[in-house]
Amino acid sequence: MRDPLKPLAMALMAIVLAIAPLFLNAYYVDVLNSIGLYALLALGLNLILGEAGLFNMGHAAFYAMGAYTAAVLNTRYQIPILWTLPLSGLAAGLFALAVARPVVHLRGDYLLIVTIGVGEIVRIALVNDVFGITGGANGIFGISRPTVFGFVIRQPQHFYYLIWGFVALTIFLFYRLKKSRFGRALNYLREDEVAAEGSGVNTAYYKLAVFGLGAAWAGMAGTLFAAKMTIISPESFSFWESVVLFMIVILGGAGNMAGVLLAAFLVIGLPELFREFSSARMLVFGLVMMIMMIVRPQGLLPARGR
């Protein structure tokens, strides 16, 4: 924080991002929109994985919960898509609380395996058209365009400001959270659970709360995704999505929001830029991951120096 260049760099970044759509064609704006959605998801996962140290590799399940809640409410009950934002967040958050309640006491790798299971169960349930409302493998289509004060959002440029506006709001809120009693409690949990409990921190409560909060954010990102695509199907919420999000948080530097954003740009943006190299790009991508973990296991921008 003492580095005087840091706020300047951040302000510059914000300005570049704010005017970027004016200079980019629709394709690149759409890439930036994808990056924004992944950034939102990764920021939520960062609370769980980076701040609290709980291994969650099923984040796509909460993303799906939010997207499907929004889609069902919109297509069946004609609720305007953006109005479903808090409801999808709530649905995903409550779902996370329900599934995390019995398993959240598990440590590290065990929790990881359970969350992978949760992610797969949700995806397969969607494919099999649970309760007859998810549309099976075809998914749900005909989701209406979002409107803001009568203005219909349809072009990538418009979605760009919706998504990145939400990212900016998220960063602002999560930054405050990080510097609070709640944020510190998550760090105590990550550093030493026994010592945290022994200092009067209700560790069971905070584990659940952070799962609920991170999932609620994934749910809201799901709404934005549904609004942007107008069609959603189970294949958008595969295990691979959870893996990518996990990777973004670890690669960026668990617990550091700037690192998470940077990693979202690299992990989502770079493969798009090198699309013409087709299959070779995934090879390079895999290699870069391996080298990163060997040379810089603490991530690109670690939470604390050293």
Partner: peptide, 17 residues
């Protein structure tokens, strides 16, 4: 500050706001 934790009250919302 960990020791002060349970003497404090504020939660997620009041911190965000």
């Amino acid at each position: 500050l960990a020791g002060r934790h349970y003497r404090m009250q504020s939660g997620i919302l009041s911190a965000m706001l």
